[in-house]
Design a protein around this nucleic acid. Structure first.
Lengths: 334, 334
DNA sequence: AGTAAAATCCAAAGCGCTTTGGAAAGTTTG
DNA sequence: CAAACTTTCCAAAGCGCTTTGGATTTTACT
């Protein structure tokens, strides 16, 4: 492995000059710069980032915190796309992404502080954290810049980003209302996801703005799995609840809901309309294809990453949380 | 940030002794070890990995090379699950995973060598590489331990891992034959995926072992997208080809195939049976749910990672490529 | 030509850790 | 009790880079 000093020796220059030439300092003439650069390339010189980081006290490392084992596998695709956005953004910067061992879920994890300090990590991008995760407390200590997806956390160094859940629910409900539905059942997810109460609230708000009374009887709690959607609708049917449409807080639950409806001989959307949330990629391929609220997952990652970058480079700037727009995707199910 | 020398000063010990105490060297008495460890903990000491790496010339860094922008979004879930396996394996080791900026696809990427050398990366885990990717040439230069998924590459330091495609095809064809199908159409993927020829070959082999002649007329080339599956089958139908079953080299193409069949009023599986490949997660939720060949994606990652770890820690050990077992998942479509 | 200013360059220290080669203290032997 | 080990510790060098504080050379101006 060839290093700076080798170039210096070969050229009869000092270490300092070589370093400066490569880093484009003004104190070195353009001729020597050129010379140094050329020979560096010739010799196949590659700078050693560790040494550099050590000297600069800068790691250019962002750590990704996410969970592999979401209970609903569909959530994986959400996470993956968000990460794609993060990666894409930081690809334009000198930052690398690092995934530290272990899982968000595992209980014998290292404290966040250790993870970050030992590796000189400069920022954290968190996706898929549960509301009961102890890391949240650590994040609140505010010792490192962080952006978290879908969990409201605002301190001096950490902020959050999420889809506009309120608007999403409004789009869904308004659309159903516009199609003549007055009795819209709602299937929510569990409380370990911070978005669940938001979506319930969005549902209520949208009902109100349409002059429709909220009826606790046609709201069911699910847990984002297909089965929970299936169970919720089965339950509603058994109770002979009065509804002509179902709004599910996730696509997977919507799929489950549809399955339950079909089994009872009900047609979607003719008898009961169904709207999902997320627009995971199979929404398009399920049958009937799902009308749903699309989250822009890539943007969530990309813009979140941009925000994180901002916090790191410009710590004084006041933070803001970001809301990413959502979109109603009309397909067959409603 | 507190460092070794601080502990040393506080305890009136030398830097050396403190370092050795923390690293459990024999040359230091257990009393001092204990003392040092305790005060280290008290002071909240966290070792600086950069400094450590620099001194040890060891980074404990594995780089993940993968592509965010597969043309078929379903491939994302494959990649994600493989990576989950990799992460899970290395979570038990001192290695971290790093994602270097940029994308497998982008053409103005850094040479692999630079990426690795500048960060002291010790191993590469590659998933989703195309057959025409220039990185393949670099990998062949054999300058760094690597494990690649689904692309056959075997040198002193790099090996590969893949699902047992041959067996997968045999399972699919045998199953269809056992259900009375003698005319099985095949929709393959494009040649940028190294698995495509393997699957075609598996199809042929399986036909032969069942005494069924190979008929080029019912084999179509797709590109792993839903549309290509749709087009392939539409084409077959237009040509009035003689077939009672379709075997698609990916689930997404299988879904497309089913769509085309339905549109022509054919029932799946009653009129035409369809089998896919991969078992991506929506296979279960499509309609009819897909009979398919399941790839154990997590294992691909986990075992591949284990292999990579082996290459790094024990470079002399002869390499072997690995085949991961596949499984026939019988659902409704066949 | 003589001097000030600008342009180049360099030696050495420092980033936080590990490791080498001894030295000092403690223990065991003959 | 001295010699010979053992045990326990340490000073200093090194990992490959950046940066400080000067030194030296070149250019510009009277």
């Amino acid at each position: 492995m060839i290093k700076l000093i080798d170039i210096a020796k070969k050229l009869g220059l000092s270490l300092t000059t070589v370093s400066r030439a490569l880093n484009d300092y003004e104190e070195v003439s353009s001729k020597t710069k050129e010379l140094v650069r050329r020979t560096a390339k010739e010799l196949g010189y590659v700078p050693n980032k560790f040494a550099r980081n050590l000297a600069l006290k800068k790691s250019h490392l962002i750590s990704l915190l996410y969970d592999d084992y979401q209970e609903t596998i569909s959530y994986q695709s959400f996470t993956f796309e968000v990460i794609a956005g993060v990666r894409n953004y930081f690809g334009r910067t000198p930052y690398d992404l690092i995934i530290v061992p272990g899982n968000l879920k595992s209980d014998k994890r290292e404290p966040l502080k250790n993870i970050c300090y030992s590796r000189g990590i400069e920022g954290l991008f968190v996706v898929g954290i549960r509301t009961n995760d102890p890391y949240i407390e650590e994040l609140k200590r505010d010792f490192i810049p962080a952006v978290v997806v879908d969990y409201p956390l605002m301190t001096k160094k950490v902020t959050y980003i999420q889809s506009d859940n309120l608007k999403g629910c409004k789009l869904a409900v308004d659309y159903l209302v516009s199609r003549g539905h007055g009795r819209i059942a709602f299937i929510n997810g569990h409380d370990l996801a911070a978005v669940s109460p938001l979506r319930l609230n969005g549902y209520k708000t949208a009902l109100k703005s349409n002059g429709i009374p909220f009826d606790k009887g046609i709201v069911k709690a699910g847990n984002y799995t297909e089965k929970s959607g299936y169970d919720a609708v089965s339950q509603l049917l058994k109770e002979k609840a009065d509804f002509t449409a179902v709004f599910a807080a996730s696509d997977l639950m919507a799929v489950g809901a549809i399955k339950a409806l079909k089994e009872k001989g009900l047609k979607v959307p003719e008898d009961i309309a169904v709207v999902g949330f997320d627009d995971v990629f199979f929404a398009e391929y399920s049958h009937p294809s799902l009308t749903t609220i699309r989250q822009h997952k890539f943007d969530l990652g990309y813009i979140g990453a941009m925000e994180l970058h901002g916090i790191i480079e410009n710590p004084e700037r006041p933070l803001r949380s970001r809301k990413i727009d959502v979109e109603l995707i009309i397909r067959e199910s409603a």
